[in-house]
């Protein structure tokens, strides 16, 4: 299978459909169990408070997975995602809504590939906070 997005159909500046989800404690616990990252910062409120947070935070990799799913849903084929590099710049608290998206920043006509800037953000106290930024992905288009 190949991506359902054709190289000819993307232009620099195009944005991906944004994908949002509200972060729930049960999902973060399920992620801890499925990924093997049992750091108490993601499960134990008392521990999280002891290191200066108001409560537990989501795993950075949990937010990265959301960015990745946003890309693969758009591509229509996970095999079309070749590379991703993300920077974790802020934490995500329970109950916050995480929105991921991306924008085409370069195209390679010979290889029919595109490079995207990708990000994830939450709205906090009326401000949009980018928790993943300065990040990029490379995809193989049809």
């Amino acid at each position: 299978m190949t991506a359902r997005v054709r190289f000819e159909d993307v232009a620099v500046g195009d944005r991906l459909p944004a994908r949002s989800k509200t972060i729930r404690r049960e999902e973060v616990k399920a992620y801890a169990d499925a990924s093997g990252d049992q750091n108490p910062l993601h499960q134990d409120d008392a521990f999280a408070r002891s290191v200066g947070f108001p409560g537990i935070i989501a795993h950075g990799m949990f937010s990265m997975a959301h960015v990745t799913t946003t890309l693969t849903e758009w591509l229509g084929d996970p095999a079309a995602l070749m590379r991703i590099r993300v920077q974790f710049r802020a934490v995500v608290f329970m109950g916050e809504t995480l929105t991921a998206s991306g924008e085409i920043v370069a195209r390679d006509e010979g290889e029919r590939r595109a490079t995207l800037s990708v990000w994830a953000e939450v709205e906090r106290e009326g401000l949009r906070v980018r928790v993943i930024k300065n990040s990029e992905a490379e995809v193989q288009l049809a």
Partner: peptide, 15 residues
């Protein structure tokens, strides 16, 4: 206690 995950990169050859 002082460690933070700053950046992560994956480069796939196949799924």
């Amino acid at each position: 206690a002082l460690v933070v995950h700053g950046e992560q990169e994956y480069e796939w050859s196949r799924p």
